[in-house]
């Protein structure tokens, strides 16, 4: 257990030293809130069902953070470690190679959580952010979204034949999800066709669930929960059969 702790500690440091990951998961979302909050403020707006811009943006941006950690950093780190034989080097030590996976999931989970806390703190201090969730609904939504999107990211690491392919797939998945799921740009401002496209992107359901639970909206969460649960299970099952520790 000591070795798992040490590994996670080091990997967390390395994630913070990875500029694009640290910037897009911790700094960029805060900048977005400061910018749009600065323009529109956080007054109740009928366009957003009576909620303020910042109140809508914060839970949505949590979806954007999950996309950075789960769809980019997680699969690219694992695929990279495999290609560069870092995984293999760990396999020639007494630790279980699963520690590497566990530490990566933990580190990306922690990074996402810190990103959320930074958003919440800045939102509260600058724009009087409202947290309207009923009981643990948002926390459960947060956990389900993370595990579902992380599993999808892990699937990328499992099926990609090499690190180069993993990068290509991750980018293909990440960018549409960043812009077309409501994570950064509200779906409310999009034309109907874009909203239709958003329905095939897994992150849309995470963003919708995070937003509705955060705002305490009295709507059914069933569809979002079901879609995310199916993505979680299907990704894990396929990964179980396709994941390799080493490229042949």
């Amino acid at each position: 257990m000591k070795s798992l702790f040490e590994l996670t500690k080091v990997e967390f440091k390395l994630t913070l030293r990875n500029f694009p990951v640290a910037f897009f998961s911790l700094v960029f979302p805060v900048l977005m809130v400061l910018m749009f909050g600065g323009i529109y403020g956080n007054k109740p707006d009928p366009f957003f069902g009576g909620h303020g811009t910042v109140d809508i943006m914060v839970p949505s941006l949590v979806g954007a953070i999950i996309a950075v950690t789960g769809l980019m950093n997680l699969p690219l780190t694992i695929a990279g470690y495999r290609e560069r034989k870092i995984l293999k080097r760990f396999m020639a030590t007494p630790i279980s190679p699963y520690y590497v996976i566990v530490s990566q999931v933990t580190v990306n989970f922690a990074t996402t959580l810190i990103g959320l806390l930074l958003l919440a703190i800045v939102g509260k201090l600058v724009f009087d952010l409202h947290y309207l969730a009923q009981g643990p609904a948002f926390i459960l939504a947060f956990l389900l979204s993370i595990f579902s999107i992380f599993s999808f990211g892990f699937l990328i690491a499992s099926v990609a034949p090499n690190a180069h392919a993993a990068t290509a797939i991750a980018n293909l998945v990440y960018f549409p999800m960043l812009f077309l799921t409501g994570a950064t740009i509200p779906l409310e401002v999009m034309p109907k066709i874009m909203v239709k496209i958003s329905k095939i992107l897994p992150l849309t359901y995470a963003v919708d669930l995070l937003k509705n639970t955060w705002l305490g909206n009295k709507v059914s969460y069933l569809q979002d929960v079901l879609v995310l649960a199916v993505i979680l299970i299907v990704s894990l099952v396929i990964s179980l059969f396709t994941f390799k520790w080493e490229y042949e």
Binding site: E6, L7, V10, L14, R17, N18, R84, I86, R89, T93
Partner: peptide, 18 residues
């Protein structure tokens, strides 16, 4: 073998020691 990006010499040594 290569090592993780941006890991320092003492960090990888301490990690392996654990």
């Amino acid at each position: 073998t290569s090592y993780q990006d941006s890991i320092k010499v003492w960090e990888i040594c301490q990690l392996f020691s654990s």
